[in-house]
Design a protein around this nucleic acid. Structure first.
Length: 222
DNA sequence: ATCCCGAGGG
DNA sequence: CCCTCTGGAT
């Protein structure tokens, strides 16, 4: 018990069900704000979204996918051809190399189709657990709660987990989230973190779950 | 633990 | 100015 103040959440906890129930009431069918056309463009978009806002990614992928929306076209573009499209995103050097290498591997090792299993997907350059989880969940292959910066922060503040790594937080979330909410949990936590439970000064005054949050009183001056 | 890395907001 | 943004590889 390294965190005596953070209650251990168990499956069936009514507070957790209430939190997700309210998210569902606000947005029954949450969708990703990243724009994509198919599994390949989804994967590329998610790789590009690391440490970047979805707005900046969409601004780049609009023109990019108009030119290269398949592994073959992307590979043909090459690092030199791709870089100008994604320079504004940031981390563009690493991302350009990864997207081109990823496209080549999808083409040469997977017949031009994005492999829809976690092991094969995470073996692709620039694809880690978080990225694979987003793609697998979004495509309906398997329920997965990808833990990014937003999900990690929100999970801690709401005391849904006190895990010290994204993987540990993911395990807690998968364990305590009611089954009907599993596929949508990631999107709700993302949206909540992006617009309400923001990093610097969370908007507890207008938060729909502030009364269920152990962190809110500190910001509300209670 | 460190590096990558531009854009937007406060 | 500083902090943050749907991380991954070394």
């Amino acid at each position: 018990m390294t965190q005596p103040d953070a209650p251990a959440v168990e499956p069936g906890d009514p507070r957790v069900a209430e939190i997700f129930g309210r998210f569902e009431a606000i947005e029954p069918a949450p969708k990703p704000e990243l724009e994509y056309l198919d599994p390949f463009t989804l994967l590329v978009s998610v790789v590009l979204s690391a440490q970047a806002t979805d707005v900046s990614v969409n601004k780049a992928t609009g023109p990019l996918f108009q030119v290269a929306d398949t592994p073959a076209k992307m590979a043909a573009l090459g690092v030199e051809g791709l870089t100008p499209f994604i320079r504004s995103i940031g981390l563009f050097n690493t991302k350009a190399k990864n997207v081109i290498a990823l496209s080549q591997q999808v083409l040469e090792r997977h017949g031009g189709q994005v492999p829809l299993d976690r092991e094969a997907m995470q073996a692709l350059p620039g694809v880690g657990r978080k990225t694979a989880s987003v793609v697998l969940n979004e495509l309906g292959v398997e329920p997965a709660i990808a833990v990014d910066t937003h999900v990690f922060r929100v999970s801690w503040r709401l005391a849904l987990s006190n895990g010290k790594t994204p993987h540990a937080v993911e395990a807690d979330l998968m364990r305590v989230t009611p089954a009907p909410y599993l596929t949508r949990a990631h999107h709700w936590l993302i949206l909540h973190g992006r617009y309400v439970c923001v990093a610097r000064r969370p908007k507890c005054e207008t938060c729909p779950v502030a009364d269920l949050c152990p962190t809110a009183p500190a910001y509300l001056g209670a």
